[in-house]
Amino acid sequence: MGRVDHLLHLDRTLDELDPPQWTPPAADATRLVRTVHELRRVPLGALGAADLRTLVAQRVALPYVLPLAVRLLIEEPLLDAYFYEGDLLLATVNAPPAAWTLLPELAARLRAVITRLPEAEVAALPRGAAEELARFAAGTDTPG
């Protein structure tokens, strides 16, 4: 997969790799906030597709989370992480362009995966998804 140094830390947590360690969530925190806090204490290698979708969508520790998401998406681009087919892919392509600046090789690999998706499968994704994928694949706001 090229130079993906972050994958060498699969036994470490985001709290270890992405300081500072987060304090516990407030007592009245939403379920989403509590979940994200909990996921920061899970070793990277134990994060599942739904966990990665949550972290990417919430833009948490993207230099560590995006490589893991792309690794899954190379194998199964339209993976149903939690909500619907392609949800991890859409969360990933909507990561801020600045996050991809640190990961130009991964951005290029993901663009290649997207360009190979069958048109009918892209058309079956939620409204607006085809445009989001086309924008990312064109590389207009990502490096590479």
Rank of each mutant, 00 (worst) to 15 (best):
Ala108Tyr: 00
Asp18Arg: 08
Leu68Val: 00
Asn94Trp: 01
Gly45Asn: 11
Arg41Ser: 14
Gln58Thr: 14
Ala50Pro: 02
Arg31Ser: 12
Gly48Trp: 01
Leu44Asp: 01
Leu73Val: 05
Asp11Val: 04
Asn94Asp: 15
His6Val: 14
Asp15Leu: 02
Ala108Thr: 13
Leu47Gln: 10
Leu90Asp: 04
Ala107Ser: 12
Trp100His: 02
Pro104Cys: 10
Ala99Ser: 11
Val56Ala: 08
Pro19Gln: 03
His9Tyr: 15
Leu90Gly: 03
Ala108Cys: 09
Arg34Pro: 01
Leu110Phe: 01
Thr30Glu: 10
Ala99Leu: 05
Pro24Met: 11
Glu16Tyr: 11
Pro97Ala: 11
Pro63Glu: 13
Gly2Thr: 14
Arg59Phe: 04
Thr92Ile: 10
Asp5Thr: 13
Val122Tyr: 08
Ala46Phe: 01
Leu78Gly: 09
Tyr84Leu: 11
Thr23Glu: 13
Trp100Ala: 03
Thr140His: 12
Pro19Cys: 08
Leu7Pro: 02
Pro67Ser: 07
Pro97Gly: 14
Pro43Glu: 06
Val122Trp: 02
Arg31Asp: 11
Leu103Pro: 04
Met1Cys: 02
Ala123Ser: 12
Leu89His: 09
Arg135Asp: 14
Pro25Asp: 03
Leu10Met: 12
Pro67Arg: 08
Ala130Asn: 02
Thr101Phe: 09
Thr115Lys: 15
Gln21Met: 11
Arg12Phe: 03
Glu119Ser: 15
Ala112Cys: 00
Leu14Gly: 06
Pro43Thr: 07
Ala120Thr: 10
Glu38Gln: 14
Ala26Asn: 06
Val36Ser: 10
Ala46Cys: 03
Leu8Asn: 12
Thr23Trp: 05
Arg111Asp: 00
Gly2Lys: 13
Ala46Glu: 15
Pro104Glu: 04
Asp15Ile: 05
Asp28Ile: 05
Leu89Val: 08
Leu39Tyr: 08
Thr142Glu: 07
Pro143Thr: 14
Ile74Pro: 00
Pro43His: 09
Ala124Trp: 05
Leu47His: 08
Gln21Pro: 13
Val60Thr: 15
His6Met: 14
Thr35Tyr: 08
Leu10Gln: 14
Trp100Leu: 09
Gly144Ser: 10
Leu103Phe: 01
Glu132Cys: 08
Asp87Thr: 07
Ala26Asp: 12
Thr140Pro: 00
Ala124His: 07
Gly139Trp: 09
Glu38Tyr: 08
Ala137Cys: 06
Leu73Met: 07
Val60Cys: 12
Gly2Met: 08
Leu110Glu: 01
Leu106Pro: 03
Ile74Tyr: 03
Arg59Trp: 02
Tyr84Pro: 03
Ala120Leu: 10
Pro96His: 09
Tyr82Lys: 13
Ala137Phe: 02
